[in-house]
């Protein structure tokens, strides 16, 4: 199987008329694990939402491709079918829709991208078997499949449910948006093992968005990028994580005064957490 590439070039994104990303360049190949770090408000979540196609995020310049497929022309569901996955920081609750039903529709659509609406879903028996196996691997009680998606889930349960979806959908590229936030250390470990298992089996390209080092002890990146003031200002290896852990972002601030100024402006008008 040839390895695919997710190529983000000169990406500019505005939210409600405010420019948040100002020329992001990033290439991820399948099989690689990248970490994207940066202070709150630097635009990390904006990147993930914009790539997935949230309607509130306006692309003003640049491109994003999986191989020769232009993601930015597509509806979010077609981006998912093209192999992109986003594990949400704050997954939405869907009242009345069980996780099993949701996932059966999702898996059917992603695995049979040419299927027409109203045609058969994937076989219930096969689906159930696969779901149970994946839930067991993540240490999830079977009861979760019958619960309404994210409704009344604890923070940790929501994150586990996101990773379960990742495991079922087996995307070419997965963006994990602050998947470690709100988790205790045991949960971070279980969730990370889940991600690693999928990544290894599927050759998934992984982008871990975080501002803590903690999860990176479990999902170990080969490449680390620092997003600051709407741009990726530093690219490096795992040593960057250690530097940030020891020194914080002050040295970035000193090194990139223009971006620091933008960062300050954004922080004062921050729209999303």
């Amino acid at each position: 199987m040839s390895r695919k590439s997710l190529r983000i070039e000169n990406l500019h994104v505005s939210v409600e008329g405010k420019s948040i990303l100002r020329g992001v360049n990033l290439t991820i190949n399948q099989g690689e694990t990248h970490a994207l770090m940066g202070p709150n408000g630097s635009g990390k979540s904006t990147l993930s939402y914009a790539l997935m196609g949230h309607p509130n995020y306006e692309i003003t310049d640049g491109s994003a491709f999986i191989d020769d497929v232009n993601l930015l022309d597509m509806e979010p569901d077609d981006r998912a079918k093209a192999g992109l996955f986003l594990a949400f920081q704050y997954p939405t609750s869907i009242p009345g829709v069980t996780m099993a039903n949701f996932l059966r529709h999702a898996v059917t659509n992603v695995r049979m991208p040419d299927r027409k609406e109203g045609e058969d879903l994937i076989s219930m028996r096969d689906f159930r078997k696969e779901l149970k196996q994946k839930m067991d691997e993540l240490g999830m009680d079977g009861e979760f499949a019958r619960r309404y998606l994210n409704e009344g889930f604890s923070g940790g349960e929501k994150k586990r449910a996101e990773v379960l979806q990742l495991a079922m959908l087996q995307p070419a590229f997965a963006i994990l948006d602050e998947t470690d936030s709100g988790l205790d250390i045991d949960a971070v470990r279980v969730v990370s093992e889940g991600v690693n298992r999928v990544a290894k089996a599927q050759g998934t390209g992984v982008l871990v968005i975080t501002h803590y080092q903690r999860i990176l002890n479990y999902i170990q990146p080969q490449f680390v990028h620092i997003l600051y003031g709407g741009k990726i200002v530093e690219n490096g290896g795992p040593e960057l994580v250690t530097t940030l852990e020891l020194e914080g972002y002050d040295w970035i601030r000193a090194k990139y005064p223009n971006e620091a100024q933008i960062e300050d402006e954004l922080e004062s008008t921050v729209l999303t957490s």
């Binding site: 569901d77 079918k81 979806q165």
Partner: peptide, 12 residues
């Protein structure tokens, strides 16, 4: 959007 991010078209 959440459904769409999982490959499910908006109408569905």
């Amino acid at each position: 959007f959440y459904f769409q991010a999982r490959g499910i078209p908006a109408e569905t």
